[in-house]
């Protein structure tokens, strides 16, 4: 075999005719199977990406004990704000505050904020929910020990110095609550309380924030990559077709000119 530089360029009709031969139809079928398999594998890795994210978010939405999260004198950090938390203690109803002008489903009312005394004597503000006004049933918190869960929020920083009557505040902050040096910063938006009591303020639902979970890059890139591999199968098939067509052309050119073009029909 001579090592001549191949100059044969198969025409599109050559490629088409070759593609319809049994041999290349079989190869096209195999390529299609591979493409489907790779597309499915990519989809599977994409599902894994979503599953890992969901699992990480679920783990972050699992309440953690408040104890070490916002120690006295420390502000809520960006890692702890929006975190699902749990706490065990007893409500101190004498220091309860009403946050005025808070709406729920279109009605104006109040938020009820009650200090919960933890085992170490510190106080954490619990926003127990919404009531239409300060005389509504459910204002009084239950006596005795309760265990609660909710979402931790940072102090509200608006409406500073807004005029209010005693026991009423315009926004939740350490200054407006004024519970002394034992108070922790921020407040818990109550989601559940055990034992539950009725009547009680309407819960104001807040979803835990989970923005900082680790993204599963490995699964994500694998998903993307399977789809690139599927495209690669197409490229290999076309290259194969081209090379074989080129080979046929070279063979027909090196042969002495035949009296008639052999028909493939």
């Amino acid at each position: 075999m001579t090592h001549q530089v191949s100059m044969a360029r198969p025409a599109p009709s050559d490629l088409g005719r070759l593609a319809l031969t049994p041999r290349f139809l079989l190869r096209a079928g195999l390529a299609l199977l591979l493409i489907l398999a790779f597309a499915f594998l990519g989809y599977w890795q994409w599902e894994r990406t979503q599953d890992v994210l969901a699992a990480e978010r679920a783990a972050l939405a699992e309440p953690v004990a408040i104890d070490g999260l916002n120690p006295i004198g420390q502000a809520i950090t960006s890692e702890t704000v929006g975190r699902a938390v749990s706490a065990v203690g007893s409500y101190q109803s004498q220091d309860q505050r009403l946050v005025v002008h808070r709406g729920l489903n279109g009605s104006t009312g109040i938020w009820v904020v009650t200090p919960l005394e933890l085992a170490d004597g510190s106080l954490v503000a619990v926003m127990r929910g919404w009531l239409p006004n300060g005389d509504a049933p459910g204002l009084q918190p239950p006596a005795g020990q309760v265990s609660i869960s909710g979402v931790l929020q940072a102090d509200e920083s608006f409406y500073k110095g807004a005029p209010t009557t005693p026991g009423e505040i315009a926004a939740i902050s350490q200054q407006s609550l004024n519970w002394g040096p034992q108070a922790r910063s921020g407040f818990i938006v109550l989601a559940s309380q055990d034992p539950a009591t009725q009547p009680a303020p309407t819960p104001v639902p807040i979803a835990p924030q989970a923005t900082d979970v680790a993204f599963p890059f490995q699964n994500f890139f694998y998903a993307f990559q399977w789809w690139v591999f599927a495209l690669f199968v197409v490229a290999v098939y076309l290259r194969w077709l081209w090379l074989d067509a080129q080979l046929l052309k070279e063979e027909s050119m090196s042969r002495p000119p035949a009296p008639a073009e052999p028909s493939l029909d």
């Binding site: 890059f217 490995q218 890139f221 694998y222 990559q225 690139v228 591999f229 690669f232 290999v236 290259r239």
Partner: peptide
């Protein structure tokens, strides 16, 4: 460790091209 596997994935893709 995870990055290394991703790197392998793309190196392997180049390996496929060179190999084919």
């Amino acid at each position: 460790y995870g990055v290394l596997w991703i790197v392998h994935g793309w190196a392997y893709f180049l390996y496929l091209i060179a190999g084919v």
